[in-house]
Design a binder for these strands. Sequence first.
RNA 1: GCAUCUGUAGCUCAGCGGUUAGAGCGCUUGAUUCACAUUCAAGAAGUCGCUGGUUCGAUUCCAGCCAGAUGCACCA
Length: 814
Amino acid sequence: MKKTFPKNWQHGENEAEIYKNWETKGFFKPETVEKNSKKQETITKKITNSKSQIPNENEENPNAKDQKLEIRNLKFEILAKPFVIAMPPPNVTGRLHIGHALGTTLQDLMTRYHRLQGQSALYVPGMDHAGIATQSVVDKYLRKQNINKNEIGREKFVAEVWKWKEQYGGTILEQLRALGASCDWSREKFTLDEEMSAAVRKAFVHLYEKNLIYCGEYIVNWCPKCGTAIADDEVEHQTQKAKLYFFKYDKNFPITIATTRPETKLGDVAVAVNPSDERYKKFVGQSFDVEIDGIKRKIKVIADRTVDQKFGTGAVGLTPAHSMIDWRIAEENNLPKIKVIDEHGRLVNVGEKYSGLKVLEAREKLVEYLSSENLLEKTEEIENNLAICYRCGGAIEPLPSLQWFVKMKPLAVAAKEAVSSGKIKIIPKRFEKVYFHWLDNIRDWCISRQLWWGQQIPVFYKKQEFEIKDQRSKIKNLENISDLGNLSNLDEKDIFVGETMPAGGDWVQDEDVLDTWFSSALWPFSTLGWPNESSPDLEKYFPTTVMETGYDILFFWVARMIMMSLELTGEIPFETVYLHGLVRDEKNRKMSKSLGNILDPLDLIAKYGTDALRMALVVGSTPGQDLAVGEGKIKGFRNFTNKIWNASRFVALRVTDGDLQSGELGEFRIKNSELRIMEGELSEADKKILASHEKVKASVKNHLDKFQFSLAGEELYEYFWHQFCDEYIEVAKTQLDGLPLRGTTQSDSEKIATPDGLAMTENTKKILLKILSESLIMLHPFVPFVTEAVWQELRQFTPDLAESIMIAEWPQLR
RNA sequence: GCAUCUGUAGCUCAGCGGUUAGAGCGCUUGAUUCACAUUCAAGAAGUCGCUGGUUCGAUUCCAGCCAGAUGCACCA
């Protein structure tokens, strides 16, 4: 039974099946496409030929290496070099949101475009284990079942997370399939896979041996709620109203200070004033013994130019252990650091009355004391910024803690050079400035996390009575030795930094895990087989071509990938960074649950089809610029996908002399399968559309090569709909009328016999087919499903078309 | 405090040193058994944020200002 052409594009009934078909045919794998490509055949032959000329590497031939390189270059030259994108790995706990949809659409668009160019195109998918996020999700999930992670212990908990991951993790990857992502699923990776973890260990040991990783006790951003240290860029700020308290430490102290956090003042060691502040000049250099509610402290008055004379009293109580800036000033002035808040957010080292109290309780008690002693002069309402954890939103407590750090300065130098020299291009260019600024002011990266879910730090300690934390402080390149108790029995030989636990003896591994971003930083090369130098994928596909991601993770991720890649592989990780903007609602507001303006991509796909969503996300999106998307826009592009369907329906039915009513294809076939158009028979309309077609081909390619996806999409939209459909097809209706009535069963003899009419009819059919098929190929990266559906219909009467539009050849310019 | 972006039609946005500044949506009027009403045709709608400068010519380049947003640092 002959298939008929329905009157509308039924995305819901077709998309899943089309995707499945692509996947089973292996079209997402570069190898399959390479096999199909004629171009590739020639290249393979050439390469094999030159290979046979290479002398055996065992024979001593100084040129062997050069020749190998030559082949690689040859390969790139003829075959066009591979096009590679590593998918920014979504969190394993994630759910598809509109931002993923935008990124994935752009990544897939590029991959499909380059695949159509005949390049070996690889789009590597994968997921991120997302340390804190996943651990807390699973923790909550287990608690609902009355399982407490501290009771079951580390090993069992991690096993539970893996179980959870197998069951619920990865739905997001399924959802990305719905977007049409043409990734090679056989190369799918997870940041916590054994290979990925091996890469992480290798990287850690390498950096450690080069003295780029150290352990030390420094002030870090501590999240009491998550129970772990986090990195500087994982801290967010929120404006809030706060009370500023003005008081003196005790009656004998001459200077009044102002603070929003009185309880931390129990750990003060100095008061800092501006060197030019006349009020306090006479005190600078003096020390005072004070007693705050029974707690004795020595307070030195020092001068520091960063102190603002106009704020508060112009005098700052310095709490080195619990303020980033105070820590710096203390280092510069050789002041002691007294830790008065511990990792649970409770006070320590402050006598019986306060020790053990929570921060807010201590504040209340201290303020009570100060006012009863008439030390509290006044309070003021001010607005300030509260540091909060980007994961849980809880308040950050800066405190000194023994953690692992990566030295960033030396890595930053190379990372800067890679961009300033133009080896890596950032689109849009203005983000290069932001990138440089960040690198110029970078501080060391705290990479240890007090979590269980993640790569455990590859450092091992001989088992003994000391706590691991204490043992850590004996590490050879420890930067800042602190007085952590009795370490006299420890020896350097009792500590081992390496990829595997040393054999023999009782060793225990450092308990902390690495920051999730540490493993993500290796992503472009770890997914391709690094550190295995002989990995064929690494050789063929690395460095990758484009990194497409949101500008919001330029620092978290992009910069660190560049640093790690340069340090570990000696190469750039990618040539171009394309940064997309945030997706906002149609009123240009941030999407949020509370506003109720969240667009769920899966709902939109169900309603309007993937193609419509993709098109709506691409058109109007310029790099680094936020994008407003409303349902109306998507609806508009749904109409466009239907337009593609219907124009194709018209062409297919008229070209085969089928029936426009029933949608049944006819028997007529164009003899010249090459679709050679008779130049002598062209009407004005023919000439016009062919000229526009050539212009659009050149322009679209130009835009796509320059990463101007929106312009390419708009131009195709305008051309296809208004020039091809509205103008040319209308004229074509008349031109085609050299033939007998459509859908009748008249015999050949009854056809209108004028040779001119027949020639024009045939020519028009050829033009329609040529323009349609070539336009479909150009549209395919934007709207993969409808173009494939139509392509398969066209193949019924045009067998020369490639098996799938995915592996068709991009239309050549005339 | 340092830096960046944005300001163009009612809305969301393109664009650009050079005729009369564009698109989509929305709006107005009309068409319609002839691929598609998820259609087609026609139309209204703009001081291109403000002020100066450069130029033969500025919406476009430069400076300043106003407004909105963002990043970084700080927030005692």
